[in-house]
């Protein structure tokens, strides 16, 4: 008896043995690497974040004199985000127009997310510039950018309520999968959350695909849990860097 071959055509995103195409289990993050204060001379705050093969550099300048009237708020600082996607960042090299809709939306999303955490009312009539350079993309572009921006803001010494850590999660049949790469993002319904600190409050919830209501809760639960462990890793890096700084100061 020959089974219908077509039903197996789907790529093996999640094998019956419980492993994803890259060898992770459903609840595992990709390798998360981060570094802060990478561009100490050219910026007020900087960071470099890798989530698997998604790699971004983030630079923060400010609070500083606003660029113009449109960037001036009387009661709070203006956070302006600019994401720059390198044309070599994807498998097929393609030029990304600086102000295409997709990038603009990404800018606004990151800006709104950070506004939830940054205590911007402390710096009225100033501007905080966040510039993100995407070096390589392999899924989870938005969360990687958010994580990098958080670290750079901390490096710049801008007061925040807590870390904003972001992570994506998707659903395969009934199994939620954490931290998707490009291949998985192309095939699955997924969402991205940005969590403030270790709480359950969300600064960001983004979903561009359709997901059934029954699946939403487990997917969000795992995405939040994933964000929490990313926060821990970022926290470790900030503390490591802080200790290093202190040690230097002590030496002086």
């Amino acid at each position: 008896m020959i089974l219908d071959a077509d039903s197996f055509l789907e790529k093996c995103i999640y094998s019956p043995e419980g492993l994803r195409a890259d060898g992770r289990r459903w609840n595992e993050l990709r390798q998360f690497k981060c570094q802060i204060n990478t561009h100490a001379n050219s910026s007020d705050g900087s960071s470099y974040v890798e989530q698997g093969y998604s790699k971004v550099v983030c630079i923060v300048n400010g609070p500083k004199e606003p660029d113009g009237r449109s960037h001036t708020f009387l009661d709070k600082a203006c956070i302006s985000v600019e994401v720059n996607i390198a044309s070599f960042s994807t498998v097929d090299r393609k030029k990304v127009v600086r102000n295409n809709k997709r990038v603009q939306e990404l800018n606004t999303t990151i800006q709104r997310t950070l506004e939830e955490a940054v205590l911007s009312h402390l710096y009225p009539r100033t501007q905080i510039d966040i510039s993100i350079q995407v070096l390589q993309q392999d899924g989870g572009l938005l969360p990687t950018c958010v994580n990098a921006a958080t670290l750079a803001l901390i490096d710049a010494g801008i007061p925040m309520v807590d870390y904003v850590s972001a992570c994506s999660a998707g659903i395969y049949d009934t199994t939620p999968l954490l931290d998707l790469n490009t291949m998985e993002e192309n095939d699955l319904a997924f969402l991205t959350v940005g969590v403030i600190g270790k709480s359950d409050s969300l600064a960001l919830l983004m979903m561009e695909t359709r997901m059934s209501m029954d699946n939403l809760e487990p997917v969000m639960a795992i995405a939040i849990a994933g964000s929490h462990s990313i926060r821990d890793i970022m926290d470790r890096e900030v503390r490591r860097h802080g200790k290093q700084r202190l040690a230097k100061k002590g030496n002086m």
């Binding site: 609840n27 359950d200 809760e217 639960a221 939040i224 849990a225």
Partner: peptide, 11 residues
């Protein structure tokens, strides 16, 4: 969201 089950994360 307080009722959600926390999923353990592989570390």
């Amino acid at each position: 969201m307080s009722t959600t089950v926390k999923r353990s994360i592989e570390t």
